[in-house]
Design a protein around this nucleic acid. Sequence first.
DNA 1: CGACGTGGGACGTGGGACGTCCCGCGGCCT
DNA 2: AGGCCGCGGGACGTCCCACGTCCCACGTCG
Lengths: 229, 229
Amino acid sequence: MGTQIRRDVMQLILDRRLPPGAPLPTEAELMESLGVSRNSVREALKALQALDIVEIRHGYGTYVGQASLTPLVDGLTFRTLAGVADDHAALTEILQIREVLEEGLIRRVADGIGDDGLARLESIVGRMEGAARAGEAFPDLDRTFHETLYDTLGNALVPQLLAAFWNVYHRVAKVRGWTSDPAPAVTACRHRDILTALRARDVAGAERAMADHFRGIEARSGQATLGVR
Amino acid sequence: MGTQIRRDVMQLILDRRLPPGAPLPTEAELMESLGVSRNSVREALKALQALDIVEIRHGYGTYVGQASLTPLVDGLTFRTLAGVADDHAALTEILQIREVLEEGLIRRVADGIGDDGLARLESIVGRMEGAARAGEAFPDLDRTFHETLYDTLGNALVPQLLAAFWNVYHRVAKVRGWTSDPAPAVTACRHRDILTALRARDVAGAERAMADHFRGIEARSGQATLGVR
DNA sequence: CGACGTGGGACGTGGGACGTCCCGCGGCCT
DNA sequence: AGGCCGCGGGACGTCCCACGTCCCACGTCG
């Protein structure tokens, strides 16, 4: 069974305690130690590559991967684009989950954020406002803001999960040709609101600011959909 | 490039508007229409199979898959088991995300749940209490409760995401040999608390009940870890 | 009319050959 | 002596062919 070989390779990584980036046995060694043909080994490795459990470098070797959430992004993107129902509904589902997550997380952030965290956010928002005055969009700063925001939680999964949903959303929007460009000034303002509430340790206010932020995104999403149909 | 063939097959599915369960062209047809060898086609299909974008039935054919979150479960399980840091920390991260999600969701549920939803939950909690009196565990009922709870949101992604995290948690616990069996009576009581709060449209109470629920899970998890080390 | 057997289609596995890419060693030029 | 270039070996990428296994459907026989 192909699935079995895949599990064998995973088990091999676990048994040998191979960390991400460590080299795997060559295909020849794997076909010998697992007792299967090279084709089967390659199919298993290709599957693991798609799961980002393994990284294959042409002409160099195979290495343990980062086990990132890339497969989730691919899967959700495909699922959204292929959805039998219209994909606006599917995107709304993703947005709702992001919303619930960030609303719940901001509360915990407000409890534990320190002065250094606030300073870093201040720097980011400052750059946002600078870009906004120049009339430029700042998708990278947006990402960095949310990433930095949840840094203090010490939960490495959180930023990755949020980034995954963010990627799905924007990838689908790109494929569909939606130009969801809100006024940069408005976005900068929303982030400023969140930071202000955090500075005041105003948990409820931070939640409200985050909710407003998402309300804006939803509105844009709805408009873009209507414009296309 | 192998990745390219994978994208071609995905694009083919999207272009032809193939719904989940629809048959894909045979390997022979794909190798002709994509102009690559059968091995390359098979490697791409195997990768897509791992992403649950395609389903391969031996001796029958290849079909469009459900694009479920199975790859997320596999990836997170692997990542947790392979984590350089101890896996209790990794499991806590997953638990924290479940917690944030369910706390945020319960609020929305409390707003919109109807009498039929409450009745279904009542039935489940009733069976829980019956099992608890008999001293039996009821993992299935637990799952069903949370699934039914979020049915009313109309967001198909929510139950799947929660189920994915649930699966990762319990799969890791199983591999690690943790016997995280709380007293069934306590678990039943926690669910009863949630239902009671929902019935009263008590949003804050429901949130608190859900938080208590997770506090119990975390405590058990910590104990199990200590017991093993 | 129904149960059984056989054939064809489709995926699973194995083996071999050749191309492509990357790294490192050794010779050669400066 | 130091740096540049060419070459060889290792490893993955692609391809071809053959045979095995599984499933379904058709046709035959009782």
